[in-house]
Nucleic acid binder design. Sequence first.
DNA 1: ACCTGAACACCGTTCAAGT
DNA 2: ACCTGAACACCGTTCAAGT
Lengths: 191, 191
Amino acid sequence: MMTMDRREAILAAARATAQAHGYGGLNFRDLAAEVGIKSASIHYYFPSKADLGAAVARRYWEDSEARLERLWGESQDPAACLGQYPSLFRKALENENRMCLSGFMAAEYDDLPEQVQAEVRTFGDIQVTWLAKVLSAAEPGADAVAVKQRARAIFAAVGGAQVIARSRADIAMYDDIIAGYRVSGLLPRND
Amino acid sequence: MMTMDRREAILAAARATAQAHGYGGLNFRDLAAEVGIKSASIHYYFPSKADLGAAVARRYWEDSEARLERLWGESQDPAACLGQYPSLFRKALENENRMCLSGFMAAEYDDLPEQVQAEVRTFGDIQVTWLAKVLSAAEPGADAVAVKQRARAIFAAVGGAQVIARSRADIAMYDDIIAGYRVSGLLPRND
DNA sequence: ACCTGAACACCGTTCAAGT
DNA sequence: ACCTGAACACCGTTCAAGT
C-alpha cells in the first residue's frame, strides 16, 4: 500500500463505502474508525458530509475520466474501446458487489446536497461525451444528435445492467445482459 | 379519493416515500404524520420496519404484475406490448420524479433485510418472465435462452434509462434514451 | 495544524396505559 | 380493536475547546 495522507485515506474509505451503501450509507463514525481517528476529526478535512460527498464524487469522475482517456489513447480503436467499456462497470461488481458511485447517487438524487448532485451530473456528462467521441470515430459521417442519443443509451443500459446484476450478486448475469446488448445491436458485436 | 383502511393508507404512503427516497429513507415518524397517527401505532399494523418494507415491495410487484397482465390481456399483441412497456416506467418519473421501487432497492440491496431482498428479486423475475413471454409470442420459434437474455437486457436497459433520467429530473431524456434503444434494435421500432 | 468531548437531533422499538 | 406518551438505546452531525 502506497503512502497516503489522511485526507486521501478518508477519501478512499468514503468512496468504497459509498459504492456499497450510497451517500446515505456514509457515516463519519465508521469512516473515522477505518482511518484511525475520531469522527469529529473528519470535519477538519471535510467541513460537512456534503463537502465529503462532493469531494468523493468529484474524485470518482476524475478517475473515471482518466481511465477512459487512457483506454482511448492506447488504441484509438473505436471497436476496441466500445468492447472494453462494459468491463469498466464490471470492475465495481468484482470489487465485493459494489456499484458505480454515480449510479447509486442517481437513485439517491433527490436527497443529495446540491454540490453532490452537480458532481453526479458531471460524471454522466463525461461518460456520454467519451462514448459520443468513440462512436463518432467509428462512424465518421454520423449525425451528431443520433450519436449522442446512442451514447446516452449505452451509458444508461450498462448502468442498468450493473444494478440488476448487483441485486443478484451475480456477475454472470451482468455478462449475460451485456451479451444481450451485443446481440440486439445496442453494443457492437466483438467477434 | 376512495376509502382506504389505515393499513392501506400506510402502505400507500410508504410506497410513495420509498419510490423517492428508498428503503433507507422510510421512517415511521414521517409516515405516521402523513397518515395522521403516531409512529408507535404503525407497529400495530407492521411489527418492524422490515415487515413494512417487505409488505410495500410485495404490493408493488403485485400491482406491477397486474398491470402487465392487463396490458397483455387487452391486445395479445407482442409489438403493442413491447411498445407500451417503457411507458410503465415512465409513469414513475411523471409522478414527481419518482422511480421504480425495485430499481431503488436494487441499489440499496446490501442494506436490505432478507425478507425485503426476496420481494425485490420477485419483482425482477416477474418483469423478465413477462417480457420473455411477449418476446416468444413475437418470435414463436426463438430459442428460450436467447429470449430470456433479451428479456433481461430490456428490463435492465429500461431501468437504467429511468435512473439516468431521474438524476436530471428530465423526462425528455428518458424518452430520448428509449428512442435510442429502438433505433439500435434493443426494442422494436414502432412506426 | 490537527484532534476530541460533549451536546444535539433523530430513529426504530418497546410497553404500559388509554379508549 | 386500535391508539398513544414516554422511555430506551443508538447513531450521525456539529462545534467549541483542546494540544
